[in-house]
């Protein structure tokens, strides 16, 4: 039947690029923290050069990330209400505590690592892993518990966020190691096998990420009307270029090809391109989730 809307009110999209950036930065932080614990928490000695860079990146990013949240508040000076009047059912309240505990743990862990106290480094590294998982998992819950938005309200949202955090964290670590080895300390000889190993981890996590995205899309496509509309928005609607072009093709397929083909997987510029594309792709994913999710009409 012909239906046309004569008059309707839609309020402006309230959460935008700042929130997407915040999700992106916590993801990078959680990813680099977990990579840093490969050597110091789990004893994989070949990843030892990443320990210190990892913890520094994790701490720095997690100092910047909550600043963006504060700027995004309409009343930034009332931020202390978050601690005084918490409501435990709200994922933002969980975040208040996680975003306080996690950087503190990062600093303690880094302090012992730089002092060379391996036993305490290991303890705080292992404490930090669940914290890092939670600090990024809770951002998945922020979206998943926003039940008005069909693109967000799915149980797969926290796992997708965790896996994409790992993807972007690994890509950032590859870039950081390449910058350190080939630009800052280029006089010294470096063993590139570390980069190839990181590349293998990156392949595994990109594949896992693609599987989760595929699962999400399959369920959206076969669920109720609103979910179907959301899936169509990603596949052929307003966000299709960003989703199919940037997130899936540039951010996952091309890096996968670069990392798997025998003549590019040991090629350092190829690694650089793959990592940059992956980082752009994950940012596009955060943007699509936040802004795309909010753009589905409610009234």
């Amino acid at each position: 039947m012909d239906v046309s809307i004569i008059y309707n009110v839609e309020h402006e999209i309230s959460l935008g690029i700042p929130i997407a950036t915040y999700f992106y930065l916590t993801g990078l932080s959680a990813g680099s923290f977990i990579i840093s614990t490969f050597a110091y928490g789990f004893g994989m000695t070949k990843f030892k050069p990443l320990g210190k860079i990892g913890v520094i990146m994790a701490t720095l990013l997690l100092v910047i990330a909550p600043m963006i949240l504060l700027i995004d508040l309409e009343q930034p000076l009332r931020f202390w209400h978050l601690i005084l009047y918490l409501r435990i059912t709200s994922p933002i309240t969980w975040g208040t505590f996680l975003l306080t505990l996690y950087p503190m743990n990062c600093i303690v862990y880094g302090y012992f690592m730089f002092k060379g106290d391996m036993r305490r480094t290991k303890i705080f590294g292992l404490i930090g892993i669940p914290l890092a998982l939670m600090v990024h998992g809770y951002t998945g819950f922020i979206l998943a518990l926003g039940k008005a938005r069909i693109l967000w309200n799915t149980a797969i949202m926290p796992p997708i966020f965790l896996v994409s955090a790992m993807v972007s964290g690994l890509a950032m670590m590859i870039l950081v190691v390449i910058i350190k080895n080939y630009i800052i300390q280029r006089e010294k000889e470096h063993d590139p096998t570390l980069l190839y190993d990181l590349g293998k981890f990156l392949v595994a996590s990109i594949v896992l990420d693609l599987i989760l995205i595929g699962t999400d899309l399959t369920v959206l496509l076969t669920s109720h009307t609103e979910a179907y509309m959301a899936a169509l928005m990603l596949l052929k609607g307003e966000f299709s270029h960003l989703f199919l072009g940037v997130e899936v093709l540039l951010g996952a397929i091309i890096p996968l090809i670069l990392l798997l083909l025998p003549f590019t997987k040991r090629w350092i510029p190829g690694l650089v391109i793959a990592s940059i594309l992956v980082m752009i792709g994950i940012f596009a994913m955060r943007y699509i989730m936040v802004v795309g999710g909010m753009s589905i009409p409610l009234s």
Partner: peptide, 8 residues
């Protein structure tokens, strides 16, 4: 505090 989560 204007976190806008309720709007979402």
């Amino acid at each position: 505090i204007g976190c806008k989560y309720c709007l979402a």
